[in-house]
């Protein structure tokens, strides 16, 4: 080690007011909890969060909202976080809803050099608002254009990481994490286990280290 392994203090120093932060995890699972604690400890505020859901009140990702660090969230679901629901009703947070599959594709595009994707999801619904409808040449088929999303910082949870930043996932913890790893200017990783180079194995690596900037030291 160390390679891309970084101390907690170095990681904390990356967070600034007003940043856009993407975070992996779904309903409190596969969430990079140690990195969320780093965000809280950094004192950064007025963040924009991109995530599949807003977790539960004051749990995992939900702690960012509990500490009032977030001005806006781009997400598919807030229903289980009573604090975020109350903040939305009180006008204390901006919520941009995106269908889950479209949100994932927007992030994939952001990391893959694509401007966006065309999808039937949301066509003819309130999701159309503010989105371009594209009729593909000659087919008569209409789609919604979902544009690419990127972030200043991506927070990723993995089962294993090595000093090159290669990551392996486990079970359903992967969810949004491998996509987020590709689409942020700075990708930070919270791994359960730190491995030596070549210890994970070429076929077991789910995210190649080229996408990863820093791995939180144990």
């Amino acid at each position: 080690m160390p390679g891309k392994i970084r101390s907690r203090d170095e990681i904390i120093a990356q967070f600034k007011d007003g940043q856009t932060v993407m975070c992996g995890g779904m309903h409190n699972h596969g969430t990079p909890n140690a990195l969320i604690q780093c965000v809280i400890d950094s004192g950064a505020r007025h963040l924009t969060v991109i995530s599949i859901d807003s977790a539960d009140a004051n749990l995992t990702l939900g702690r960012l909202f509990h500490h009032r660090l977030v001005d806006k969230i781009i997400t598919s679901y807030i229903g289980r976080n009573t604090e975020v629901v109350a903040m939305l009703e009180a006008g204390e947070i901006e919520v941009e809803f995106v269908p889950q599959g479209s949100l994932v594709e927007r992030v994939r595009c952001g990391g893959a050099g694509l401007g966006g994707v065309l999808t039937k999801t949301g066509l003819g619904t309130v999701v159309e608002e503010g989105r371009q409808i594209v009729e593909v040449n000659g087919t008569g088929e209409k789609y919604l254009l979902e544009t690419a999303l990127r972030a200043d910082i991506g927070l990723v949870r993995a089962r294993m990481a090595d000093p090159l930043g290669n990551l392996a996932y486990r079970g359903t913890m992967r969810n949004f994490n491998p996509l987020i790893a590709t689409a942020a200017d700075l990708t930070l990783v919270d791994a359960d286990m730190l491995m030596d180079v070549d210890e994970i194995g070429i076929d077991r690596i789910g995210t190649p280290g080229v996408y990863v900037d820093m791995v939180l030291a144990k």
């Binding site: 269908p99 889950q100 479209s102 999801t121």
Partner: peptide, 11 residues
């Protein structure tokens, strides 16, 4: 009344 988000339902 109830604005939880669509999750994966639309897809």
């Amino acid at each position: 009344k109830m604005v939880p988000g669509m999750g994966g339902a639309m897809d």
